[in-house]
Structures are given as C-alpha cells and as structure tokens.
Amino acid sequence: MIHDLISSGDWLPVTFAFLMGLSMLIYAVLDGYDLGVGMLTAFASDDEKDSMIASIGPFWDANETWLVLGVGLLLVAFPLAHGVILSELYLPVALMLFGLIFRGVSFDFRAKVAKHKKHRWDKSFFAGSLITALAQGYMLGAYITGFADGWAVVLFSCLIAIAVASGYCLIGAAWLIWRCEHDLQIKAVRWMKQNLAFTCVGIALVSASTPFVSARIFEKWFEFPAFLMLAPIPALTGALIIGLYLMLRKMPLNKDRLAWAPFAMTIAVYVLCFCGLAYSFYPYIVPNALTIVDAASAPESLMIILIGTLIVLPILIGYTLLAYYIFRGKAQELRYD
C-alpha cells in the first residue's frame, strides 16, 4: 500500500492529511485542556479561579495556534474541502469564533480591569470556553454524518457537542490534578471522575453510531481480518478508562506521586479515539464525498510547504518544550514583573 502511494505520487496529499490530522489532534489535547480548565472555572472559588488560570496562562496562546495550523493546512493543502466543510459549518464556526474571541480576551481583561469588573470577565471566560467546546463538538458530529440534513443529525451533533465538552473537561481536570495542589487538586479529582462517565457515553455513542451512519465505515471495521487488527483500539481505550477510574478513586496519592499520570492516560485516550476516527474516514476528507487526493492542491505548492514544515517543526517542538520546561511544576501566581 505504501509502495503504491509513492509510485502514484499520492503520497504528498496523504502526508498533508496526516500532518493536518496531527495538528488537529495536538490542538484537541492542548487547547482541550485549557478549554476544559476554562469550563471548570464555573465550579471554583475566586482564588481557585486565579490558580487555575495561572496554570494555563503561559500556554493557551500557543495551544490555540495549533487550530490555526490545522485549519491552515486544510486551507492550503485541500482548498476544495476547506470551502465545502466551512460553508456547511457556517454558523457553528461563527459560534466557535465568538467563543474563542471572548475566551482569549478574558484572560487578559480579567487580570487588568478594576476588581468589581473582574467577575464579568470570569463569566465570559467560562462562557467562551463552553461555547467553543460545544461548537467544536457540534462540528465533529456534523462532519461524522457527512453533513446530512434532518433533526436526527442535529440531535446527534448536539450529543457529540456535549460529549466533546465533557472530554475537554476531563483532560482539563487531569491537567489540574497535575498542576495544582491541596483542595483544588482534590476538587479536580472529583471533576475528573464526573466527566469520565460523560466522556465514556460520548465515546460509546460515536463508536456505535459511526459504522451505522455509513455502510462503508461499517465494512471497514467489521470485515475479517481487519476486525482483529483493530480490536486493540477499543480494547486499549476501555482499559485506559477503567485504569483511570481505579486510579482516581485513590488520587491524590501520597507525596503527590503520579500526579501526571491521569493527564498522560487521557492523552492516550484522545490518541486512540483519533486513530479510530481517522481510520473510519480515510481516504475521504469530506465523508463519502471528496477524497484526500481529489481535494489536494498542486504538488509543487505542497512540496514548498512540506520543506518549510520539516525545517520548522523540530525548532517549534524545541521551543514548545522549552516553554513547558520553564513553566514546569505546580502553577504559581502569574506576574508580569
């Protein structure tokens, strides 16, 4: 299969689909945790809000840039798909953008306005995070159904919206367990337990419904021997979720041991879910309508981007790690001076 790709010259679009998928996955993990933290601020006291936001303050901006890269790659590598997908999702995209706007500016305004106005920006921070997460979930739902029409689709997309928001809260809580201390950490454990249940329902729903939305996907998953090869994906996901549940019952552990583990395990769940989705949709970029190869830009333009990406990506990963290294450990108060 790999040999065919290279000889047919289709490896370039497929590489770009992979890069785009990777950016979206990294986005979901990174902005997922800070959107999740944003939603969870609704259940925290004022002091806790400050600590929670301090834990994501140095990172959120770069996290959001992965979305720009993901959409950017869709835009530049698959202009036809970009037009179709974003025209179909006009209103949810607009809603997400409003969410992102309010969330992004609230970070800064809440720290700079007079005390009595801070609550307003806290509320808009929460609302912006929630709206962004719901809108992204809704878009995922609409995408899975191949932008079909009808009330069932809207209802399905709404359920996925809730599941995604809950998934973000899950990873957000996991981040807080890692990065916060004392009562807030205990609270985060509770939040994570609650969202684990919701997220499970969401994953089960997507897994169960996707094959039935399209006969093609059904066949891909349930024909023999693919079925056996794929079995580790749901099995591992299940094992991780059970592991998380068992672990959270005991968290936080003595001397804060393994505080990072729930976060790492949640990332693994994200990766597995993503692999499942990617397998279902390949080779389509607009489900059942447009394939990766058909939607791609001219090879010479893709080549130019690929060269740049290969040069820049290691540097980018390097300074991202530097930032995580500098702001390691438990969150401290954010100070400019």
Partner: peptide
C-alpha cells in the same frame, strides 16, 4: 503560521510571565 505564529505565541508566555 510556521515561522511567525508559533514563535510569537510561545515566547509571549516567557516574555510576559517568565521574568
């Protein structure tokens, strides 16, 4: 995006809160 956005977004965190 590759040469500008990530660079400014990542180092902004260090510039603002890293002193």
């Amino acid at each position: 995006v590759l040469t500008a956005f990530f660079l400014e977004a990542t180092f902004l965190g260090i510039m603002l809160f890293g002193y």
